[in-house]
Design a protein around this nucleic acid. Sequence first.
RNA 1: GGUAUCGUGGCCGAGUGGUUAGGCACAGGUCUGCAAAACCUGCUACAGCGGUUCGAAUCCGCUCGAUACCUCCA
Length: 502
Amino acid sequence: MNTERSLKLYNSLSGKKEIFKPLHEGHVGMYVCGPTVYYDVHLGNCRTFVSFDIMYRYLLHLGYRVRYVRNITDVGHLTDDGEDRMAKGARVAQLEPMEVAQKYTVGFHDMMRAFNTLPPSIEPRATGHIPEQIEMVQDIMARGYGYERNGSVYFNVRKFDQENPGVYGHLSGRVLDELLVESRDNLKSQDEKDDPADFAIWMKARPGDIMVWKSPWSVGFPGWHLECSAMSTKYLGQTFDIHGGGNDLKFPHHENEIAQNHGACGCAPAKFWLHTNMLLLEGKKMSKSEGNFITPVQMFTGDSPFISKAYTPMMLRFYMLQAHYGSQLDITDEALLAAEKGYRKLMETNKVLQGLPADATAYDGSESEHDRAILALIEDAYAGMDDDFNTAVALACLNELGSYAHKLANKQLDASAVSPWVLERLKTVFNTFIFDIFGLQDESDAAGDEGTVDGLMALILDIRANARTQKDWGTSDKIRDGLAAAGIAVKDGKEGTSWAKN
RNA sequence: GGUAUCGUGGCCGAGUGGUUAGGCACAGGUCUGCAAAACCUGCUACAGCGGUUCGAAUCCGCUCGAUACCUCCA
């Protein structure tokens, strides 16, 4: 695409925006921490994956060949009492652990499809990469950063820090010594570890653990952070371009991941670390125990005290576009209502725009002030995306561009005011942004039977037009009100009457 | 308690040294048989208190508040 533009990304490692240059010209490797499939996907998860989906789409749009890896965590996370999450879920539901994983993986995929996210290039599962994880433990031990205790293997953070100063804690802005002091009491006494900051890379199974594998040290399971290190290395190489995730994963997950990669190969994993921010509900963190919680399904059905009606996935996606991925985003019913209208308006505007005829005969070859304004707004939209994927800025530009479509359609602006090639570019850019980059879908189109409905509507509006010529307002309004009740808005314009679904 | 991030108009939310964000809501107007939609105009802001600067919503300090992480967590 346009080589004069440069993509800038906020890199959590440096705390600054940096110009993005892939390690290998034209190719981008991106790893994003995926969901743990022990429960229904969290709405916040959806925001994170929608955010990275937009990044993925924009990188593709820029012409990069992107390998997007997003894992499925189906093992390895411990609960408070030390029990494997998958195993706990299994016990509660009386299912095989893999059955639980499968159920919620399918649910997760359904949700991702509802939000119209593109599938990643590779979606590796932790349980499918046990040998790779064991190998990584071996690599870490071979380089002297792992030690075994009773069949479990721990990462020696202290030694790693001494030999690689400035690496551990860099991402999350933590100082190792302070970390140790601040560790809570119940964590200080993890007896097997040499040091409280050390973390497990292989855990020996205890009686009752179900998801276990053989390893050189014990029958057990990999540590909490190891899968991402092993799988990113396997599919993207020891060093790759972008690693992403929610910012609550910064510490300890990503910090430990970096340590493991360094420990295994002596090099840094990702050049850029991108972190998405949290979704709030009425200004507060979503918390099941506090009752401050809403699920994606509740959003879609409207079955929640927090919202007055159902909101569709695309409305939510639009809502997310209005904020930067790095900012907290607060969900309130009032804000969602506003987003719903904004979303519908954008879709309707695009239809109007795409329906504008290109009048090449009126073109005199010059560039009008409107041409320049439109082209400048298009540039601004791209500049917004180039500035750390600022969808809010790009969307604002589209909104402004959209008014040109209506002005032309309403003849408030003469067709000759915009050059045909500018109009064509506007149409293309609008479509590209809305559908390809933002990943929105026009839900009013989703009902199917478009041909039938169009035919029916044409007939109905024709009858109404006749009634109106005869000043039969009763019939005319009856049709309009009846259609309104059926969820169809009738719009009388200079060029005739059009309609749209609400 | 420690460490970060943030606090923008009625609501949501960009911006981050001087210039209109945008959406929703609201008011007036144009259009319309009346509406709706669309278009035009208007409205109004940078938590508080100090400081730096010719100039600060934007930089610095303090206060208050919010959120996150420090413990599995997008």
